[in-house]
Structures are given as structure tokens and as C-alpha cells.
Design a protein around this nucleic acid. Sequence first.
DNA 1: TGAATAGTGTCTTTGAGACAATATTGC
DNA 2: GCAATATTGTCTCAAAGACACTATTCA
Lengths: 229, 229
Amino acid sequence: MQKARHESIICTVDVVLLTLHEGALHVVLLKRDREPFNGALALPGGYIHQQEDQSAWDAAARVLREKTGITAPYLEQLATFAGPGRDPRGWSVSIAYYALVPVSILPTDRPQIVMRPVERLPSLPFDHKSIVDSAVGRVRTKSQYSSLPVYLCGERFTLPQLQAVYEAVLGEPINKVSFRRKLEELAMLEPIEGAMESGGAHRPAQLYRLRKEYRRSLSVVDRGLNPRS
Amino acid sequence: MQKARHESIICTVDVVLLTLHEGALHVVLLKRDREPFNGALALPGGYIHQQEDQSAWDAAARVLREKTGITAPYLEQLATFAGPGRDPRGWSVSIAYYALVPVSILPTDRPQIVMRPVERLPSLPFDHKSIVDSAVGRVRTKSQYSSLPVYLCGERFTLPQLQAVYEAVLGEPINKVSFRRKLEELAMLEPIEGAMESGGAHRPAQLYRLRKEYRRSLSVVDRGLNPRS
DNA sequence: TGAATAGTGTCTTTGAGACAATATTGC
DNA sequence: GCAATATTGTCTCAAAGACACTATTCA
């Protein structure tokens, strides 16, 4: 029925780290410092370490931390990419994760870490282009019915800022009234005492933050054939 | 940054094969014929075969075919389960898939293949309970906004039958008019010339089938914060 | 005061559910 | 015709979008 032995398969995790920069989704890429594809820009990734990692999520978080210094963002499994041709070293499995962070927490002092707009990706090694495209699709879909984009904002943000983030991710304008009604319904934000203004010659906007119970999770709206009943 | 060597990790695929039986979702389980957990009921699964499999999907389809005889159902990647504790043999990765089939195509002549309702699962080895629960959750969620449940029907079905399938999967009644409006909108069904009646003393229902372009894919309804614009 | 953007009220449109009328079959 | 279920029409209700009005700040 099946072979008793299994030849060793290359087992890795890759992380699609997304952020918003100049109003557009960007993916964080690293210049590789080893073969294969030494010197090429690629997703942060690495082998699973059986001694350290208690799960694939742990491995992804560790790889992200080791390669970019980023800790504990929103990090979720995307899909697994596997096959004989995606890595020149042989049959390989990559468990892909995606993460969202505000651009402000990205390290700026490491030239090997760069950001590229997801709409104009450079050529990428392995099947990393498919992985990025898949992550972007997932983020767009999930943003339609959840609070996912808040993880692209910093800790404090105004509703107009958050709406701009949603619009950048979804690539289309959103009705302001509906947007605020929906956020009200999701009940995951709380106002902070103290408004911001900076923009200047206009009414300042209320600052909000995620309520504690949503700091690391999502709020999802009901939807479907029959959300009622 | 990372170890140059990677010890061999156990790489498998598992398939959550779901069907509808007596109005309830059931998962197909196999009596294991080898260690570990010899004799226990478990998901059909097996090693990736580097020589044969061109992808993880291929491996899942092969495993399903070899273990149950079922070919080419709706088969989609679910998620990957990995860690040091889920398999007594060591750090393991299982790329899980789920499949939907009409109960009529299940083999009935093999006693090692059984069906269990997903609401009353027997105890399962490995983390197969988590995998099944995850698949059931995915199917329920996806059924809310897509045509997924049609793959639980045979090739020909009436709208009342299909509605009953949706209701069984979602676990709640659906408004008949809305249901038909939604199917109309999805535009994936076509009537077959010829009605069925069997039930007897009442008006017969029109038989439908999937339109060719949807035979192996899904139709998904728009949804979200701003489906318009 | 005027420009600019934040925040809110409300009318309109759209889509889903309720309900019921009509259609068709076997007895 | 009667029972039973399929199919369709239409009214009602709720959510989403459009639009505009008010609020607040700085120059």
C-alpha cells in the first residue's frame, strides 16, 4: 500500500511578512546569504528545528525573529507548498505563514532587509512568487469580512486612518458610514482619551486602540446564505 | 542563523473524507493495519512518495485512491499539522486535505472502511480529532458562502434535495426563496430535461446538475464590508 | 471667517426572510 | 377532488450606500 521507508524530505517554513507603505501593500524580502540562490531576494524562511520548535507556528515565529528581529505579530498559517521541483535540492515541503505588521516596527538598519510592493514583485527564487500571491489573496479576502487590517496599523490609530488602510488593502473605496457601522458592530475598538490633530487645519480625529481581548485575534462578521435564524 | 543539517522529519498526508449519511455529516475512517496504533480507526493517510507524487495534492489523491478506491472528488488542502508530539515516531508533519463525496460512491464491500458521524467521533490516534474538527469547521464556514455542498450530492439532484444538504451541513433551516435566489445568482446549476417524482403524490421536482465549468471548482458569492463599488 | 477633515443623521436602494398563491402529481 | 410537495410572486424588514449636514481645528 505504501513504502515502509521515507527518504528524507526537505522541511522548511517560509513567512510572507506584509506591511503597508506609501498606501500600498509591501512584502518584506531578504537577500539570501547562502546557496541555493545566494544573493537573491527571497522570503524569510528556514528549516524546522526539531529540538527547538514545538510546532510549525513556533518554527515560523522563530525564523521571523531570527531573520528580521520581529516578535509576535499577527502570524497565521497560509498553506503548504510541496513538490519535487520547487527547490533544486530535491523534494521539499514549505509550510508557509503570513504576518502583518505596521511598517514602523520594521528594522531600518539592515540593508539585507528590503520591502517591495506586492503589485510589482521582483523575480523570486523557489515558488516564492506563488506564495506571496497566495498570501496577498488571503489577506484581501479576509479583510472583506474581518478586522485583519488593524494589524497593519500601529497600536493607536484614528478611524479615517484605519479606513484608508482597508481601502489600500482592498483596492477600492469604502463607504464611510457603513465602515463605521461595521466597526461598531465588531466591537473590538475602544477610544483613547485624547484626540490627534497633526494634519492641522481641521477637526481632530479620535484615537482608538484594539480592546485587550482582540490584541492577538480577529473579529469576524457574520455572513453567508443565512446569517440569521 | 540556522542549522546546516536537518534531521529527517516524518512527512505525511492525511485526508478527511466527508459525506452525508442519514442527514448528518460523517467522516470516513480506516482500521489501521500497521503500527503505530495498529487496529485503531484513523484517517486515511500515508507517506509522501517522492518518486510518484508531483505535489502534496497528488499525494493526497493517491492515498485516497489507494486506501478507499475513490478517485477525483473535491479535494482541497486544509492545513498542515506539525510538531514533536503528534506521532510517537518523532517530529512529524501532516499536510491535511479534505474531500467531499456523495455517500453513494463509497465502497461497501470493505469492512476496514467505516463511517462515523462527525458529532460523535470515536477516539482517534495522533491528532486526527483536531484535523477532523478543523475540516468540519472549514466545510461549514465555506458552505455559508459557496457551492461546496453540491459535492456531497450525486451528479443529479433536485433543489429541495440540495437545500436539505445545505441545511444538514449548516445545521439550521434555510429560507427557500433566498436559497433559490442565491443559487440563481451563483449560476452554476443547469436543469436537466426530465423531472423526478418517486416521492409520489405531489408535484415532481426539476433535476439539476453542475454546469460543466464548475464540475471540479467552486462558485463563491460576494460578501464583505463593501461588496459593491 | 474660510478651508479642511471628522463625525453623524437620514433617505434610498438592495438583498434576505415571511408568507402565501399557484402548479403538478398520485391516489 | 384531496393531499402533498414544487415553484413562484410579492410584501416586509434589515443592512448598506449616498448624501448632506454639523463639529472642530488652524490659518
